[in-house]
């Protein structure tokens, strides 16, 4: 049961619904107003995207930090740079010093250590369509296969997947479109130090429980109380005598007339049923015989 009576009333639901799903125009307007309020050095180069449009994994991003890319548009067109970071809010890529940069004025409060001027060079966020992957492939001109050639990959396709030890997750094989046997490996990520509470991946992946029956649950019946939420809204409890008085109305007392009627009915039903005895049958037979004999005499 909800505390705001949503289970009973829909009052105000329209406003809450509007807040949850604002119209597109309102969203655009709000983004614009928000951008106006930010100083230039904090303004993002790309629009902030709604959560459902943001990239979720390597399949969406295509280029991971460490990948070499060539810039296709803008002032840094033709430069080969390395991806240093993803900007998850805008689906943008931040490149190293070979990528495009902008010079903005930063107030003194935001200065970093060693900064001597207000003007700072910041990397410009780039969209995925502004970039193309750069890879080293075997030079087809060299039959020995010893030399490699730097190429820009027009398009990427994914084929199958494998567990990547460094990323600690399943990763798709990144192939060149039209040449599925040519796999471009993912860049090696920065190694992450395990925290003091981390469990070794070998230990975590070791199987310690085997299902012995699909008909019977492995959790004992008594243990359910401990694993289920004691404050669940579905756990309503049972009807108490006090609840019963709220749910069940009292009975209307019977009137004197009704009582007398019921009494009479009871009496009528309890009367002994007359039974046809042999003597009665004999008497009836005698009467019929007398009647028939009288008829014959006439």
């Amino acid at each position: 049961m909800s505390i705001n009576f949503k289970h009973i009333s829909k009052a105000g639901a329209r406003i809450m619904e509007r807040l949850a799903n604002p119209p597109k125009g309102i969203v655009r307007h709000q983004a614009k107003e928000q951008a106006k309020a930010l100083p230039e050095f904090l303004q993002p180069d790309l629009p902030i995207l709604p959560r459902e449009q943001r990239f979720r994994g390597p399949r969406d991003w295509r280029f991971m930090p460490g990948d070499r890319v060539v810039v296709l548009h803008g002032e840094a067109k033709g430069n080969i740079a390395r991806v240093t970071k993803h900007d998850t809010a805008t689906n943008g890529f931040i490149l190293d010093e070979f990528g495009p940069t902008k010079t903005v004025a930063v107030p003194k409060d935001f200065w970093t250590e060693g900064q001597t001027t207000h003007m700072v060079n910041l990397p410009v966020l780039l969209r995925q369509r502004d970039l193309r992957l750069v890879a080293e492939v075997e030079d087809p001109a060299d039959p020995t296969g010893a030399t490699t050639k730097t190429v820009a990959v027009a398009n990427i396709v994914y084929k199958g997947q494998y567990y990547d030890e460094d990323y600690k997750r399943m990763m798709p094989y990144r192939c060149v479109f039209g040449q599925p046997d040519l796999i471009i490996p993912w860049p090696r990520p920065e190694p992450v130090e395990d925290g003091p509470l981390a469990t070794d991946s070998e230990v975590a992946r070791e199987q310690t429980f085997w299902v012995d029956s699909i008909a019977r649950g492995s959790i004992p019946q008594q243990a359910f109380v401990t694993i289920r939420n004691p404050h669940s809204k579905h756990r309503r409890g049972t009807i108490t005598p006090a609840d019963l008085r709220k749910l069940v109305a009292p009975d209307m007392p019977l009137t004197e007339t009704k009582k007398a009627y019921l009494e009479e009915q009871k009496m009528l039903h309890s009367r002994p049923k007359p039974v046809l005895t042999d003597a009665d049958k004999q008497m009836i037979g005698d009467r019929v015989r007398q009647f028939m004999e009288a008829g014959e005499r006439k």
């Binding site: 049961m1 009973i8 309503r236 009807i239 019963l244």
Partner: peptide, 21 residues
Amino acid sequence: TYKVGDPKPAHIPERYKKVPD
């Protein structure tokens, strides 16, 4: 038909029922 000990229904009125239905 409600009985003591049955699972509670989703909604229980706040007040006792004072008059027969």
